[in-house]
Amino acid sequence: MTARQRILQKLRERRGGPLKAPAADLAIVSERDWQPEEKLALFTQMIESVQGEVHRVDRTHWCDELASLLAQRHIQQLLIPRQHTVGQQIRDAADQAYSAWPRLRHYDQTIEQWQPELFHEVDAAITSTRGAIAETGSLILWPTQDEPRLASLVPPLHIAVLEADQVYATFHEAITTQQWANGMPTNALLISGPSKTADIEQTLAYGVHGPKALLVLILESSAPDASYKDNIQ
């Protein structure tokens, strides 16, 4: 018999007899009664409490805001997605810009082909998100071919673009609404702030293995759309 068979057999022939599985009642982690504006406010409060930086920007000129944030931080090389609209809009903005943009880079090769550059040269990366979670201040990312896993991890600055209407109240709401259980990507992530540690005498230090800073750009439409208004009343 293999180890597998022996372990499973032992579990099956449990001395105490069969066990009954108690039913789930997940209301405590799912039922929230928050309006969109409340969710945005809570998300902001939560992620800021762990050193995330939030900028609510109008979608018509968010790239201007981005440009000034990058300039403030003297970013030299910015990793952007090639296909996602986030990347396209940045390229367009950079093309038309009067002022200088960082060098824009794409994750076109496998990591093995450009590991030293990614690790040593790229000093910021921008990615899209699949939404966020208000309760914990978390961004949801499903890395793709266009926005691979290490984009949000290796460069010292990670900028995440979040659509204002994509904020879920809870993690439970996010996974059920987006039906995660029907098919998970190879890697799914919740990101709540920049990388940190308290391993040295409980003292918080940021940027231990991942980004030292996390910026969240929340894209809003200047005229709040109708559904928002309905909800607020």
Binding site: M46, V50, Y107, D108, Q109, T110, I111, E135, T136, G137, S138, T144, Q145, P148, R149, L150, M184, P185, T186, N187, A188, L189, L190, I191, S192, G193, P194, S195, K196, A198, G210
Partner: peptide
């Protein structure tokens, strides 16, 4: 554990790098 509402990363892994993927 640490009084955090959530850890910085929740990393959910469901497979190795796929042929079209660029890392992992």
């Amino acid at each position: 554990a640490t009084g955090q509402h959530i850890t910085t990363y929740v990393n959910m892994i469901s497979g190795p790098r796929q042929p079209e993927e660029r890392d992992g």
